[in-house]
Design a protein around this nucleic acid. Sequence first.
DNA 1: TTCCAGGCGTATC
DNA 2: GATACGCATGGA
Length: 268
Amino acid sequence: MKYEISGSDIILYEDDLELDDVLDTGQAFRWDKIGENAYFGYCLDHPLEISGTKGRFVLKNTSEEDFLNVWAPYFDLGTDYSALRELYSADPVLRAACGFSRGIRLLRQDGWEALVSFIFSSNNNITRIKGIISRLAVHYGHFPTAGELCVETPESLGYLRAGFRAKYIVDAAQKVASGEVDLKKAAELPYEEAKAELMKIKGVGPKVADCVLLSGMYRTEAFPIDVWMKRVMEEYYKDGLPQEFYGTRGIAQLYLFNYIRKYKGEEK
DNA sequence: TTCCAGGCGTATC
DNA sequence: GATACGCATGGA
């Protein structure tokens, strides 16, 4: 991890990163594009303006402490994505996907934030998901905790315009606040048990649970299958993804998802 | 107007 | 366990 301090900014040097690939591909929903290769957004309640491309990035108004404690982990800067792509390149389809978007990384998001975000993602589009989450955070002045949300009702959350998902958020908040679902514990459980734990929450099925495990708990063996990934599996992996990728197949999914959605999506 | 969006819960077989 | 259907909302 290479960086330097420049006044009140941090300059980050990282070849395996493009902001469009990580902040605007449906991994996180709290980032707004404010210019060419420039974004403003949040990790929980930490705001950041970041810009850059091709190996050099500026994190505006960021202390070294915040960089090391919040943003370096968030952008998973301790992981060598060149090495991962090298591993994946043993497979021809993955090699193409890795070549298509080399700036992809897995963001290490907060578990609760990811849970709320992906519950809202169900049968929804990214623009609306972002709108709902933005209204939620603006309403509270910060990203609300489970304790704050557990006293809400679908009616009191009407301002979110979240539709049928509002009742799922209330259920999630109640189960997390009461301890019936323990996110910290779930993060340590074996994969299948962790997934089952999350699925105790209404509105959390296999796909949302995998997204929370992957994006919110850095469980890289979680492999979310949505309509796009179903298409990838049917077209290229009829016999399943090669077993050798199991431990990090969630990161492979990011490359495949972006590839099929952008590349194939433009065909029709 | 109709269809669709990174699914899920429920009913039915 | 597999399959069909409704679901809130808003943009295309």
